[in-house]
Nucleic acid binder design. Sequence first.
DNA 1: TTGTCAAATAGGTATTACGTATGCTCCACT
DNA 2: AGTGGAGCATACGTAATACCTATTTGACAA
Lengths: 261, 261
Amino acid sequence: MTEQAAAADRGAPRVLPLPDRSPAPRLGVAVVEALVDLIVSGALAPGDTLPPELPLSQQFGVSRTVLRESIKRLEEKGLVSVGQGRGRGTVVQPTRSWNTMDRVVLKALIAHDRTLGVLDELTVVRGQLEAAMAGETARTRSSVELDILRGALEDMRVSVHDAPVFNAADVTFHEIVMAASGNRLAESIARVLFERARESARYDVATPLSLRQETLREHERVFRAIEAGLVREAEESMRAHICDAWTRRRPPDHKGTQRLR
Amino acid sequence: MTEQAAAADRGAPRVLPLPDRSPAPRLGVAVVEALVDLIVSGALAPGDTLPPELPLSQQFGVSRTVLRESIKRLEEKGLVSVGQGRGRGTVVQPTRSWNTMDRVVLKALIAHDRTLGVLDELTVVRGQLEAAMAGETARTRSSVELDILRGALEDMRVSVHDAPVFNAADVTFHEIVMAASGNRLAESIARVLFERARESARYDVATPLSLRQETLREHERVFRAIEAGLVREAEESMRAHICDAWTRRRPPDHKGTQRLR
DNA sequence: TTGTCAAATAGGTATTACGTATGCTCCACT
DNA sequence: AGTGGAGCATACGTAATACCTATTTGACAA
């Protein structure tokens, strides 16, 4: 057996055996995620008081200090409010003061949503925001931005048979439109919503080729509107694309909970 | 000097000298606000590394534990990311990963915004979201909701000469429409934006009677559309109301930075 | 019986001190 | 020149302690 053959023998599964490589299982984030889940799932209802810090820390098997840090993060998310003094403690806040745009909170909201209502609502919001941004882009587009956008569209065309690459190009297209609109607040919100939706298992069903071709056609329509400076048409086509793309992927669960326009 | 005179001397301003009664000046929140301000204002740019925990805690005059809790909150807001090891430390994140919907962050963004661009952007977003919700409400309104909404409108009519009461009724009207729409995610976002805008000093200029009367007329138009079930008209009137209300209040600073539709 | 004040108590707040884990950096050895 | 290990800087995690604050409770007086 030659040197190279031996290397191939040993080396074959050694190149990428476990690429999952979790960077560091921080204690605090695990506690936060557990508590967020308890609250969002309803196991801890608004008005309920959590156990005192010491018992709770023992229950999670962490020190009181890291528990306190976790509570601070929950407070930051608007899920609880803490107060000292006998009979106070940390109490779960009403839903309306939750920070629904927070990564962990939104993720838990989607995960515990049986009727898919949250994803429906999310799609409406994203559609409205990206529609406005597409319209603004159609108004103020520069020839440079137009070229970049055309390039992203071309990337979608050539990769229509390669789902991962196509999806990446899809995302890029939206990013360009949002950045070109100049509305950084809307961009920030829409991006967060999009990321959470895409990382949801329910959103990312396998997409057959026909769906990608449909998606491509819709993007082409959006691009033509922006290119021609047709504000109204850019808005309408972008909103339609986002809502239609979701109805295409959406599991036929409770079809009519929220009308997607 | 008699005992009583001495008591009066000391006691005079003791009855209600400062009813501001701040509940408790927590150390952590002060540190967080200071750091958020440093980052949002640009004094600490993305990519910069903050001083190590110990020096920083000394600089703020707090213990290392308190500082660590504050850093955790900054991390939660997406402003910094921390990592251990030599040469790592806590480093300021790029703007795109900031949690712009966070109370403190959004407040700082508005405060440091010279051109009012953020408030312009905020108005566009709020207009889009409340328009969608008004349309949805026009579609699905129940007679009960319609009665409640009519009551809120009536409250505005009778209080048009009393600015504080009028403004409260104004807010109530919007809350009812948002709640009736059933889109809790949009409601949550729009509410946060509205609250931050209203608490901004630049937003809350003194409103003369004529402006309130104009506002009232716009609300009446929205109500009629919802009552009649005219989805498109409800959307359009709500969006127009929100944008117009802002242009009425808006200081004539940099008028054209963002077109309000 | 009712009103008021003060002590006891429960809970979070803040400090301090210590040990652990992790990644650079650099130097020594191959 | 490349590689491997020592050292170091820095954050992570635990523990013990003292303090501050709001509620409860009980005693005492009207």
